[in-house]
Amino acid sequence: MAEIDALYQALILEHNRNPRRHRILEPCTHHASGRNPVCGDQVDLYLRLDGEVVEDAAFQGEGCAISTASASLMVELAPGRSVAELRALFAVFEAVLHGRCAPDEVDMEALAPLAGVRYFPGRLGCAVLPWQTLLRALPPMDV
């Protein structure tokens, strides 16, 4: 059994209390709203893209500590990254959350403090909501 501290690590609690880039981004090039109808968590995501690269990112919303910290970590790391890099990082994050690989087998980067969410299946949706919203805000992938 995972201890509760595995979920609520100090950094998660700190981001929850002081979320980064917690504002409306103006001007922005991309925006999406995400909502978890089960629990009422809600996030608004704003991006300014320069071609394929995120120039700036911000979010607003109301949610639990996990969704707030996940959104905060996400918008903090996004600037300067390409859309493809962000998609790849989310794929790694999801793989860990769903137990397809162990956190130490991959590079979760700044998302590492969220690895504990994998022990709490009821909370996976909270952790991925900001990222799912990000994917919806981004232009569709070329195939």
Binding site: I4, L7, Y8, C39, D41, C64, A65, F120, R123
Partner: peptide, 13 residues
């Protein structure tokens, strides 16, 4: 300080 979801998880534990 805590969202209802966080409360429920901590109590469940």
């Amino acid at each position: 300080e805590a969202h209802p979801h966080d409360i429920a998880t901590i109590l469940d534990q």
